[in-house]
């Protein structure tokens, strides 16, 4: 029993190093997914016919490919085309591409959730397209965006563990290194699971709080 406590304490520094990489991956994938997802959602909602078709096609293709395949495709495929890419960057790119396709769907849904009556009303008082987006659509979209975003955050965080497959020293791989030496998979995997849990639970709770802060009668937290 003492051996196990010692193992836990000794493992913490290495696991924390992995946790930091996991958090870095998560944040970068989120940013990548949010920016590209927003652009795609704009294209699919407000673009001309061609842009609408192309962005929709992007989403359909990406969402039909397993994430691990996307990741391997980026990591092993790009060098074939002459682009050398580090495992960490490949993970951000591969997992970010997947995230962008899902983020685009979330954005698109929140834009569409704003009733067309309100858009008509905005136009009728002389607001243009952009003004209507900024002052009518966006403030409402952001409120309905938070719950699905929290969900997507949890998925992205957990899926960073796939980067293990291409050798990124994130949380799971750091754990595997320890297991290879100490051979106590139960303890180490439990520790890893606990860290993922804390990261997921903590942040989704935080987002819930933001949701409540922003709520307005009729939209957001209360109407759910």
């Amino acid at each position: 029993m003492d051996g196990r406590v010692e193992l836990i304490i000794n493992s913490i520094p290495a696991l924390l190093r992995g946790t930091i990489i996991t958090i870095q991956l998560t944040v970068l994938i989120l940013i990548f997914g949010l920016i590209l997802g927003l652009i795609l959602a704009f294209g699919e909602t407000y673009g001309n016919k061609l842009i609408q078709k192309l962005t929709a096609l992007y989403g359909k293709v990406i969402r039909s490919i397993p994430e691990l395949v996307l990741l391997l495709l980026v990591f092993y495929g790009l060098p074939n085309l002459g682009f050398r890419i580090r495992p960490f960057n490949a993970a951000v790119l591969g997992l970010g591409i997947r995230a962008s396709a899902y983020m685009a769907q979330i954005f698109r849904g929140t834009f569409k959730a704003v009733s067309s009556d309100q858009i008509t009303a905005a136009y009728s008082i002389g607001m243009g397209k952009y003004m209507t987006f900024i002052y009518v659509i966006f403030p409402q979209a952001i409120r309905s965006f938070i719950p699905p975003f929290a969900n997507e955050y949890a998925i992205i965080l957990k899926d960073t563990s796939l980067a293990y497959a291409i050798g990124v020293a994130e949380l799971l791989r750091q754990g595997q290194y320890i297991i290879a030496v100490e051979y106590d998979p139960l303890t180490i995997f439990l520790m890893i699971a606990a860290i993922y849990f804390i990261l997921t639970f903590g942040v989704t709770r935080l987002l819930k709080l933001v949701e409540f802060k922003l709520k307005v009668p009729g939209i957001g937290a209360e109407s759910r």
Binding site: A121, S124, P139
Partner: peptide
Amino acid sequence: GYVFQGFGLFHH
């Protein structure tokens, strides 16, 4: 001014 069946009040 334009007033219509669906009101179109800004919910937020």
